[in-house]
Amino acid sequence: MYMIASNIRHLRTLKKLSQEALAKDLSITRSRIGSYEEGRSEPSIEMLIAFSNYFKLPVDILIRTDLSKTKDGSFLNVAENRILFPMVVDLEDDDLIEVVPIKASAGYLNGYDDPEYIDQLQKIKLPFLPTGKHRAFPIKGDSMLPLKDGSFVVGQFIEDVRDIQNGRTYVVLTNSQGMVYKRVYNQIKENNSLLLVSDNKTYNPYLVPAQDVLELWEFTCCINTQEYDEHELQMSSIIRMFNELGVELKALEKMMQ
């Protein structure tokens, strides 16, 4: 049944459970767990619901999504029936981040909660990033100078809107505005809104209702592409820039030790 066999085995391993321990928790036999993990039999609907409740993951995620790319069990329930996977790793067990391409950024509002859409995004390795889930977003317009159109911002996922640090910059995804990059001020206590402010003062600040906010990603680092010609800004070039940034910062870190 799609990915269910490998997913059960992987999730059990993440929780450091033996087949016997998992079977006991689910009130079934160890041999049934072994049969599911080896693909010799498929769980019934009732059993899928039991696995879903136990691992706190939607049934369709258990069936359709390859969870072996995640390296811990701390999946984030960011909305009802929606899961954000905190980490993806490569063959060397290094953390990877997804890059939202410029041409596909308009579709992010429709695909941000679709595991298949996120899974097809190109991924890069930035070993200098702090612990947490990160994603890279293209910047549009000139409202956040000196960053210009086409630049990329890497943001760290913020699970709770109340964790916003006033005056810091965030990639904000909302139902009404789509994806924007702004300086954010928390006004939830005053009017249940966030105040979004541009660094370019020709743009007026505006309020966004807290319930309209779908995702928040706090600025971690960026690639400013203003020095590059348009023909140079292919996705392969962007990926190379980020990788070179990681190498340079790792070298600097070693020099300062």
Rank of each mutant, 00 (worst) to 15 (best):
39 G>Y: 09
86 P>W: 04
160 D>W: 08
78 V>K: 12
144 M>N: 03
126 L>S: 02
220 T>K: 08
228 Y>P: 04
109 L>P: 00
59 V>Y: 01
256 M>S: 12
50 A>E: 03
74 S>G: 06
181 Y>I: 07
19 Q>M: 15
210 A>H: 04
32 R>V: 14
203 Y>F: 15
145 L>H: 02
105 S>D: 03
6 S>Y: 05
237 S>L: 00
175 N>T: 15
162 R>Y: 05
185 Y>I: 08
112 Y>T: 05
227 E>V: 12
133 K>I: 06
32 R>C: 06
56 K>T: 07
247 V>M: 09
142 D>P: 01
49 I>N: 05
155 G>M: 04
121 L>F: 05
88 V>W: 11
214 L>R: 12
108 Y>K: 04
210 A>W: 02
222 C>R: 01
162 R>E: 12
43 P>S: 10
14 L>V: 05
226 Q>T: 14
48 L>I: 13
176 S>Y: 05
67 L>M: 07
171 V>Q: 06
159 E>R: 04
200 N>S: 13
103 K>I: 14
176 S>L: 14
96 L>D: 03
97 I>G: 08
247 V>K: 14
148 K>T: 15
8 I>T: 02
227 E>C: 07
247 V>Q: 11
84 L>H: 05
50 A>I: 02
101 P>Q: 09
58 P>T: 06
180 V>W: 00
255 M>R: 14
149 D>T: 09
189 K>R: 10
197 V>I: 13
47 M>N: 13
96 L>M: 14
131 T>V: 13
99 V>S: 00
95 D>G: 01
164 I>M: 10
11 L>H: 06
202 T>R: 12
52 S>P: 10
208 V>Y: 06
212 D>H: 09
39 G>N: 05
107 G>C: 10
241 M>I: 07
107 G>S: 11
76 L>Q: 14
112 Y>Q: 03
67 L>T: 07
167 G>C: 07
117 Y>E: 02
91 L>W: 08
162 R>G: 04
4 I>Y: 00
201 K>L: 14
177 Q>D: 15
38 E>F: 03
147 L>Y: 01
139 I>L: 15
182 K>N: 09
147 L>H: 00
52 S>G: 11
22 L>D: 00
114 D>N: 14
192 N>H: 11
48 L>A: 11
212 D>F: 10
228 Y>A: 09
166 N>V: 12
253 E>D: 13
236 S>F: 03
132 G>N: 10
144 M>A: 01
153 V>H: 02
187 Q>F: 15
75 F>D: 01
4 I>W: 03
255 M>C: 12
